[in-house]
Every structure is written in C-alpha cells, then in structure tokens.
C-alpha cells in the first residue's frame, strides 16, 4: 500500500501538461521573434531591410548596417562613452553602497536610526520628479556636458545601500567582535570579514547598477547636448527619431538602426550570462534567510 502511494507522481495530468507547453511555447515565440527580427534586419542589406515582409530569415546576409553605423553614424564614440561612464560610476557605487551598508549594521552606533531614516527618505524622493532641480544643481556645479556629471548623478542609491545592509546582517557579529578584540580596525573588519562574505551581494548590485547606468536615458538627455558626449541610449534615440522623421538629415537605414540596437545589447547579454549565477544565488540566499 505504502509503495503504491510513493509511486503517485506529483505532476500535472497529460492534457494539463500539454496546455502548459502550448502556453510556454507561445510566450517563447512572442519573446524571441522580435529579437530574431532585429538580428536579421541588422545583418541584411539596406535595400532588403526596407522591404515589407516578416524578415525572420535572410534574403542576403550583409554586414553593411554595422559598417554604416561605425563609418557614418560614428557609434564608436558613444559606445566608449557608455563603457567609461557605466564602469566608473558602477565601481564607485559598489564601494560607497557597501560602506554605507556597513555603517547601518553597527548595532550600537548612536543615531543609527536617524542615519537609516536619512537614507530611507532619499528612496522616497523619486529622482525623476526632481529632474528640473537636478538640472539646475548640475548647472550650478558646472556639471552639464561633462563626464563627471554623467558619473556623479545617481552615484549612490538608497536601494543598493539597503541591499548591502541586508547581506551584512547575515554575517555573524561574533566574527567582527572577535576581530575587534584582536585589535583590528573598522576598515580591516569591513574588508576582510564583511566584504568576502557578501560577494553575491556585491555582484548583485554591480550587475543591477551597471545595467541601470548603461541604459540610463533621462539623466543624459537632461545633462548632455554636446554630441561628442552622447551615451549609447542617447545616440540610439536620436537615430530612431531621425528614422521616423521625414525631413532633415538623411536618416540611417533600417539595417543600421538595428545594428546599433544589437551593438548596445551585446554587453548586456554578456553581463547577464556572466552575472546570472551570482544574481540567482543572491536571490535564493535572500529568500531562504527568513
């Protein structure tokens, strides 16, 4: 009797499984087809790209869109701008957020609650809504049209600080206490105990922030008018506008616009493949901590 019960498989019935597979296939198709379409158009000739049709397979494979993007649109500069700005600001963000998170786990720190509140309140002030004043502040600090402006705005976020704080809370305090008794300074405790035990957290905020910075559109659109400082999203946006307008400069052909899209996507795919492991382990750690 017991054996029979053990054999009861805990699965959906056959027809339910079928429905499930059909649903997932549909989702998969709706997600993937637009991406295939973009890749195919980007590697077609300008002539084929402009023709009507499904464009899920090549009539003629060609890299002229990519050539156009680098030769005529000069996408190299915005690409390097984005790389520089994103890496620099993410790197500083990770350092500062983890330091701030460390401050918040000092259990006996006087005014810790006030400091926590000070940081929490900034999370309730949506940066998008203070945009006009942010513009004025940047103007007063001469940060308009500068790399520094692009790096400094959004340099620290309350969200990342809280995330690091939560990772640090799972570090046993006895470890820090015994190190302190051995005469270790705060920076040393932070560096040699808290940071190594929170690598998934560091990877998570690095990943989230890099993606956010790489994709950021509103702040660059507000701060930057000088085309030599354009980041990739700004450049893409101006290519897309050109492409839908009727007059003005000759718009980039479809294959070039799609090539620019593919080029902006590749770093994100790479970082996703590389960081997924950390991100998922980070999520499950957070979920199982309770």
């Amino acid at each position: 009797m017991m054996e029979r019960r053990d054999k009861i498989s805990n699965e959906l019935l056959l027809y339910q499984k079928l429905i499930n597979y059909v649903f997932l296939s549909l989702v998969f198709i709706v997600m993937v087809i637009p991406m295939v379409n973009v890749v195919v158009i980007s590697t077609s000739t300008a002539l084929d790209a402009g023709q009507a049709g499904l464009k899920l397979w090549w009539t003629k494979f060609s890299l002229e869109g990519y050539e156009y993007v680098f030769r005529v649109t000069k996408l190299g500069r915005p690409f390097l701008n984005s790389v520089y700005v994103s890496f620099a600001s993410t790197f500083i963000q990770v350092i500062l957020s983890s330091l701030a998170g460390y401050i918040l786990v000092q259990r006996e720190l006087p005014f810790r609650r006030a400091i926590t509140a000070f940081i929490l309140v900034t999370m309730m002030i949506p940066g998008d809504l203070t945009l006009i004043s942010i513009y004025q502040v940047n103007k007063q600090l001469s940060l308009l049209n500068s790399y520094t402006g692009l790096i400094v705005n959004g340099l620290i976020s309350g969200f990342c600080i809280l995330l690091m704080r939560n990772y640090f809370l799972s570090v046993p305090e006895s470890l820090a206490e015994s190190a302190r008794l051995d005469g270790a300074g705060e920076l040393k405790i932070f560096r040699s105990i808290y940071l190594p035990l929170s690598i998934p957290g560091l990877a998570t905020i690095f990943f989230l922030e890099f993606v956010g910075k790489w994709n950021s559109l509103m702040i660059p659109a507000t701060l930057i008018t000088d085309q030599s400082l354009f980041t990739l999203p700004l450049m893409l946006k101006s290519m897309i506008i050109n492409y839908s307008s009727v007059s003005g400069a000759p718009p980039a052909p479809d294959n070039a616009v799609m090539a620019a899209i593919v080029i902006s996507t590749i770093p994100l795919i790479l970082i996703y493949i590389f960081a997924q492991r950390f991100l998922l382990s980070g999520i499950t750690l957070g979920a199982s901590k309770e």
């Binding site: 997600m31 559109l217 616009v257 902006s264």
Partner: peptide
C-alpha cells in the same frame, strides 16, 4: 532567460525595436 532579457534592455533599445516592427 528569454523572458527576462528584455528587462535588461533600455527603452532606447526596446522602443527602437518595436517602432521598426
């Protein structure tokens, strides 16, 4: 992966893509 990927892309990318589609 495929369903999560677009979430990583900026609106400049996703918007440009769908405008063309």
């Amino acid at each position: 992966s495929v369903t999560y990927l677009p979430n990583l892309l900026s609106w400049a990318i996703v918007g440009g893509m769908w405008i063309k589609i």
